[in-house]
Design a protein around this nucleic acid. Sequence first.
RNA 1: GGGCGGUUAGCUCAGUUGGUUUAGAGCGCCACCCUUACAAGGUGGAGGUCAGAGGUUCGAAUCCUCUACCGCCCACCA
Length: 885
Amino acid sequence: MQKNGLQKAYNPQEVEDKWYEYWMKNGYFYANVNPTKKPYTIVMPPPNITGMLTLGHVLNNTIQDIYIRWKRMQGYEACWIPGTDHAGIATQNVVEKVLAKEGLRREDLGREKFLERVWQWKEEYGNTIIKQLKKLGVSCDWKREKFTMDEDLSNAVKEVFIRLYEKGLIYRGKYIVNWCPRCHTALADDEVEYKEQTGKLWYIKYPIENSNEFITVATTRPETMLGDTAVAVNPKDERYKHLVGKFAILPLVGRKLPIIADETVDIEFGTGAVKVTPAHDPNDYLIALKHNLEFVLAMDTHAKMNENVPEKYRGLDRYEARKEVVKDLEKQGYLLKVEDYTHSVGRCYRCDTVIEPYLSDQWFVKMKPLAEKALQVVLDGKIKFYPEKWVKVYEHWMRNVRDWCISRQIWWGHRIPVYYCDDCGEIMVEREAPKSCKKCGSSKIRQDEDVLDTWFSSWLWPFSTLGWPKDNEDLRYFYPTDLLVTGPDIIFFWVARMIMAGLEFMGEIPFKEVYFTSIIRDEFGRKMSKSLGNSPDPLDVIQEYGADALRFTIVYLAPLGQDILFSTKKCEIGRNFANKIWNAGRFLLMNIKDIELNDEIKFEYLDLADRWILSEFNKTIIELNRALETYRINDATRAIYDFLWHDFCDWYIEIIKERIYSQNSIDEKIALLSRATYIFEESLKLLHPFMPFITEEIWQKLRPRKEGDSIMIQPYPTADEQWIDESASKNMRFIQDIIAAVRAIRAEMNVPHTKQCDVLISVSDENKQTLINEHSHYIKKLAKVKDVTIGSNIVRPKFSASAVISGDEIFVPLEDLIDINVEKKRLEKEIQRFEEMLAETERKLSDQNFISRAPKEIVERERQKYENFKTTLEKLRQNYAYLIE
RNA sequence: GGGCGGUUAGCUCAGUUGGUUUAGAGCGCCACCCUUACAAGGUGGAGGUCAGAGGUUCGAAUCCUCUACCGCCCACCA
């Protein structure tokens, strides 16, 4: 420890947990109905209970926390509702894996015992990700934490099912669904991932009945031929016209297949003739309905060939069956040829097993009526998407929406509230399980075995978490929510459906704005994935760099809508920034420890640098708030980063050091330090939503604070435009340029930093003379200069280096230190640079079109540039001439 | 097949409605510096025909068209 009580380098591990506990203890995260305040609500996209914290979550939740903290400081009743999702298939898979280690299958336990095990697992591990999130500093209202299978949320699910059913928007139907033979359930269309795969295209000859002819079909899945019930050709296809209406004989099976004409058949593809397998292909299914074909289900739910196929194939897995079928076809002379073929194959998004299109009974939601309204509110701008490009994607999907298959043949999830009477077949959709059949009175009642798709609970999340279907104050106050932050990959799964549900059940949009986060990739642009091992554990990153550093870095790197290329090492950006702030804090603390700050006089004794920093500070506030309002989060981080590091630390602190250590009056010192402390404190507030821990730590140390005080409940700074001072900016810039020029000369001439030099400035403008005169102490201090001489007709000293700053000359006498060759090179380069720029402005100004058509101010600016470049160039040439004398 | 992004310094990216930018920053690189807030730092420097071609315009990194490469999404795939 140092004497001032702050270590030299910031150590996040020592402070982060402490402040999180402090905030929790003081209840700052909680939100309550408060009529005197405007609400600001965010519902957290509920992570899966099987989940571990990923960088995706970090980005997502950091953004939400930034907005919640920002709005909270702005005086809103900020409510961030957290929770978790039961993740039906994923969780069931995880628990089944655990069971497998004990040599058990879920069927061994039975439904009830199995569900007990899942709940047990949930109690033990389901909150892992929530615990991990807290390390990030998220300020959620933990009293409101929800789980999609909580009793009240389950009631909401049931209520929604019943209402939609009664409205005729839920129906049961036979349909080809995407069946995962591994998870043993149907999947929604968007739960299937298509991946390119090299396979084969088999050409199979089907003999025509009572003829020597054959019709050849091409297929990528020969085993499905065992379920063929027709052959289809295009009605316009001359090759096959004579066969339509006749029958083909299915090899290996012997079934008679009608040859039908259907215009969906592509003449160009394969042979132009298609085998039709209605029970195992969605297109074939549609053809079959049109033509009244037979349906032959050739597989069971495990994708093994079933009793509807010839005996020798029964019980074979679909891939074994394929081998056998191909072998037999070849043996019997039906296989014409085999080609290599690349096509995309649907796979289960949970377990990657190849999907089997499968004819079965499922429950569906009619989407068209829901989608129309949900599209409209986005097109109307009632819900805004950031970035906007997702509106188009959304529109395309909503216009082509298909019914949503909501039943899943698993055990973990919300059971479908449908009951069947075993005696009369009556279907009852009820809130409570009926004891007897409404129609026949039988007590042989059986509940539907299936559960609902996980998204059938999450699409209610923005209002089910607030207590719906019960009408209550929370719901009326906090709904609709303000912002949703989520990944674009679930725009259809979740975002679209929440909008539908919000409009349908609340009669109002569920959120006003949606921020679609970037996708995080590794430094080579590859997706983060477990199998590549390129996904760092955020907890390790937090351990190494600190949560603030991780938070800051990840949003600093995240331009709206662009992918982020992340590597752990990049967190140095945030860590170094944290350290910089830490040390600025140390500097102030060292200097204020023996004085009494006085905010009454913080705007007194203002000099140029003070007016300049106040101006820059207020500009930063405006820029930062504007950037956050338009979701340009990385611009916001840049604004505060540049201000604190470059304006405040590099220039302002360096400049005020001289005044702090000088013999100025004590009042002036107090005013100066009060001002510097004030600007720094306000900057910490600006930064707080991004880096909550370090800003709290320093803020608490900067002045004595009362127990319970916190930076997180301070008002967010607003700009005071009276401080924006363009002339201070301009004058400061001029002084800074002079300092930079002298520094450059010193560096290039290798003037030892211990040696002071003199500077002569030749400037004719009297105002500028005064300006330099009044601020020569800045130049002396920051460029290590002994004497500054100002005059309108300064004679260039021998052995001096020179520079030209906006037309005025600077000389630095160097005596023996000057290296003529270096100086010549410097000047040559500078001359060349100005020659080029002069030529460019000259070209423009001699262009009549430019003069006549460009706006006056632009032409005038160009003229000024021209004059400036010309005098600068003259002076540079003069100085160069002296050198070669 | 349809749609949407991206391409700016060795690397990662800013660059808002075309002219206040003499195309910037961070990292990396080179030189000097442990100057009493900070070497996780300071100062200075090198490094760019803004992917290519054409067009609109007095003026294009910025707007339009085409091309190339990279990446995403959707649909179809017998």
